[in-house]
Every structure is written in C-alpha cells, then in structure tokens.
Design a protein around this nucleic acid. Sequence first.
DNA 1: TTGTAGGCGTTATCAA
DNA 2: TTGATAACGCCTACAA
Lengths: 320, 320
Amino acid sequence: MVAAAAGVSASTVSRVYSHPHLLRADTVERVRKVADDLGYVPHFTARALITGRLSTIGVVVPDIANPFFPPVIRAVQARAGEVGVGTLLGDTDEDPVKEESVLLALQQRTDGVVLVSSRMPEPRIQKMAAGHPLVLVNRDVEGVDRVLIETTLGMRQAVEHLARLGHRRIAYLGGPESSWSNGERAAAVSDCAGRLGIEVISLGPHRPEHEEGRRAAAAVLTAGVTGVLAFDDVLAQGLLAGLVEAGARVPADVSLVGCDDILAVRTVPPLSTVHGPSMEAGRLAVELLLAKIEGQATDPQAVRVPAPFLDRATTGPAPG
Amino acid sequence: MVAAAAGVSASTVSRVYSHPHLLRADTVERVRKVADDLGYVPHFTARALITGRLSTIGVVVPDIANPFFPPVIRAVQARAGEVGVGTLLGDTDEDPVKEESVLLALQQRTDGVVLVSSRMPEPRIQKMAAGHPLVLVNRDVEGVDRVLIETTLGMRQAVEHLARLGHRRIAYLGGPESSWSNGERAAAVSDCAGRLGIEVISLGPHRPEHEEGRRAAAAVLTAGVTGVLAFDDVLAQGLLAGLVEAGARVPADVSLVGCDDILAVRTVPPLSTVHGPSMEAGRLAVELLLAKIEGQATDPQAVRVPAPFLDRATTGPAPG
DNA sequence: TTGTAGGCGTTATCAA
DNA sequence: TTGATAACGCCTACAA
C-alpha cells in the first residue's frame, strides 16, 4: 500500500488526490512520487461508492449510423471529457421500447443522461426525467431541460426563398412520425406556405435513409411539384439520386432543400439545406446536465439555437 | 431497506439478484416483489467494488464523425449490451497523444477496451495492452489480440480488375501515414500491380476527408493515370466530385475504386469499392475482449476477416 | 436454504 | 497539517 510505503496514513494519500491544498506541499510531492513509483492510481469504483458520483454521463441516440448524430455525440464526449467525465453510449435502434430499457440501464451507471431525438411518448420521458438528471436534445417536453435546434426558422426561410423563385406548388418529404423535429418542420412548411399562398403536398412518413429518399422520387414526380423540402439531408440526397435517375434535372426541373447540413458540399450539385449548430447543441446539453448534477436546481428550461437556411446549388427558378 | 420489508437478511436479497438458484423459488419471488414495489435496484457501484467488475468496456476511435466508425461502434455497443455490458466512448481526434490519455482514462473505468484503428506507436500499444485487457481492430501488433479487416484481398482484386480492363498506369491515393490499413493497402496495390506489369503512382498522404479527395483531382489528372484506387470511400467520393468538376468523366476517362463500402450506393455513379464486414469485426472484437476479461487466457490471436472487391459503376475499360 | 460477519478502497468527520 | 475511525452498499465465506 502507498500509505505504508510513504509513511503516512491512508487519509493523507486520499487527500493528495482529492484535496491536495489541505496538505503541505512537500507531503503531496513525496506521496505522489511513491505512488507513481508503485503505479498506484485511486480506485475509481471505491471513490464512486463513497462520493455517490460516477463521473460518467450517458448519451442516447436513435441510430449512431445516422450522420446527424456523430457530431453531437462527439461534442458531448469532448465537453464531458474536459471535466473528467466519461460518456456511455446508448443506441436505441429507433425503437421507443428499446429506448426505455437503454435509458433504465444507463441510469444505474451514470450521473445523468443526454437524450437525443427521443422517440418515447411524452409521459414516459417525464417519468424518466423525474428519477435521474436528464437533458433532452431536439425534443420539447414541458418540465424537462432541453436544447432545441430551431430548424423551423430555416424551413420558413427556405419556403420564402422558393416563393421568390416563383414556385407555387411544393412538397414536404416527411421523416419519422415520432420525431419532434419532423412535426416542427412539417408545421413550419405548411404554415409558411399557407401564408404565401403556396400549395403543399405532404409525402411520407419515411425513415431517414438514402434508399427511402431515392424511392420517393416517383411520388415527387407524379405529384407535379416544382420544389421539395425534405425532412433531412439523408432523404434529400436519396431523392436527388432518384430524381437524376428518373431523368429530372436539379434544380432546373425541381428544386430541392435538405435539413441538418450533415452532407456539407458532398453532393453534386451541392445541397441547399438548413444548417443547425448540432455540436453546440451537444455542448449546451452537457452544460445543462452538469449543472443539474451539481444540484444547481434551476427551473427546467428550453435552450433554443437557431438554424438558418443555407442556399447552395439545388434551388433555382420554378420551371415554365 | 428491502431486506427488512421482506423479512429476510441482506444476504438473501443479494442472492436474489446474483445467485437466485441458491434460493427457494418462493423466496426469490417474494423478495423480488417487495423490491419492485420499493423501486429497489442493486447498487451498481457497490457491486462493482466487491466483484471487481465494472461491466463496462471502452471503444476508442480516431474520429466518430468518420462514417467508417459508427457501424463498428454500433456493433460493439450492441454485442456488449446483450450481455449487460455498457460501452464507454473515446474519440482521439486522430491524435496519438490524445489517444494515449483517453486510453489511460478509460482503463480506470472499464474492464477492457476495443481500440479501433490506433495511431499510436507499436511499443506504446503493447504497454497499454499489458496492464489492461485490450483488443485491437485494424492494427496488427504482435502479442496483442486483434481483428483485422483484410482489405488487401479486395485491393488486389481491384487491381486485377483494372488490369483486365486494360489499365496500364494507375494511382494509389494514400490515407493517413500512421494508419495500418493505409500501409497494407498501399503495399497490396504496389505488389499486385508490379506482378501485372502495371505502373503505380503514389499520391498523398491525405486525411480521410472529402475536401482532401476533391483537391486531389488535379494531381490525379496531371499524373496521367487511367485508374485510381483510393484509401477509402470518403477520399474516393471527394475525388469523384473533383474529377467531375474538372470535366473528367468517371469511368469513361478515369476509373475509380474506393475502400470500406461506407457510402453504399449513395454516389453517382455508384462507387466500386472494397467491402469489409466492419460490424462483424466489432462484434468479434467484443467476443475476444469478453473472453479475455473472463480470464480465458489464450495466446493473443489475430482474427482476419476478408474484404472482397465490389464492382459497381465507377470502373470501366481504359480509354484510348 | 438462509443468516452472520467481514471486507472491497475510498472519503468525511472528528480529534489531535 | 495529519491520523483514526466509521461508513458507502454490496458479496462471499462460513456457520447454522
């Protein structure tokens, strides 16, 4: 044991690692040296047992493979890492039932969790939030801390942009029904178009996957619209491929807008989209969560970050 | 306390959750019911302290946002979850120094870690493996358990395919220098081309990012090659975009092969590539790791999984 | 089949 | 500034 080798008590060794300022500098140094020589590091679990702090948070997402999530996971992990907090990962496979069990499992081994794009019904979320610190991202539940990327802003701007370009009949290519973001975006498109006297066809729902978007090309073409707003970039990219295959030109024949800006300029032509600060959202969520864990009990709040429209190359004047 | 409420001792409650078969069935049932009513769940940390098992593993990758990694992370997390093991995530930002500190931090809070595409020098890896169960993915270090995706197989097949199509001068668009996979792939291309009497131009190194690939188009065109094998799909997709921008047709003017098959058919035209079972690799790594944690001390082994060439639409006859 | 006692490695409290 | 002691909540002998 280190204490014996350094000729001090166990409490002193403990203090070297938790409150070194309470000790004489030379004592700290001496114990540190002995400990290093012996390869000693404080036992993580024993410390957690007595302090009641795991120094670990969870982050759960519907699907790690969906390119929207890795940047927010990365931001969460980076911010948590800065303060010595580990990040446990949960993937729910887009399944609300699995989501609940994943959440339950994580609650036991974390001090709190960041729940991104939850697919669970609202009452369940409230229940989970009651027992354990919880911060939502992209899900708006009263009484629960949350960070919301306001893509409705960008969606409205996109509709206005299409209106200026002369489009009179457009489509919204819907995402998952249980997605809060999808509801927000659909409503924004519908409201804004209504005010501008533009007709909106609603397509979907669709899982946010490339193939789904590709297959939706037929429905888009038969709907006779000149512009499409997709739930996200993945669907938009798929639709783009499907459209090109079907012989339609983008944006000459149909204009296309994605959402989330996860493809950057990887598309040909570069995709017009709505850009949300997803990494900042992840960071903010951790901030809220850490404050909550520290017991700084403020009223649950909604932090909103704006996501503006980004015009690249898939929108153009309405044909004809 | 549950024990009191159920009229049994604490050890009996403990046994209900760890060795229920040692108890009478009705005792188990009765205690369980009381526990559930009280919302009791065994304290994770206290259990970990005495058993010495965290029931948590780590998975560390160079960059979560690189689309190659999410599927393997997902597979790791899924397999671990099946046996009640949590997954801590580490992102090293492609930095060997950060990688080491991340690894050190994870060792304290996990029973073992899966290290994917390590960028650390070999001796460091061996040292880390000595102190704590470690399984490598896509890094071949003697004396350390590892799962290797054999893209060399597919790379050779790709070169042979190009040879059959009449290509006599090709390029290899290199990835990160510290990447084992990059070394393997470069060597495979060079060897195979040498045997077939094909000339190989070596380009790079490049970070595996879209923009890098795009910018490499100029070098590819001035090199006067008719075929390119890229380190990975990300670089290949970028190069494809750059080539198209520069007015070159793929595959009419230049044939293109990616690696890893992370883009599936999301590219126009669909990218010919080398398909490796990355999810299976993740699963296998967990299998090895769990066995090691259980103390089933076998000799460190290398598990190799083959990655064959997948011909899609970006390869064609050499021009002229 | 169940209970009793001891201890896992740390930190908080109190005393010196 | 440092040490002694008692927990933290559980699991594992050993005893009954």
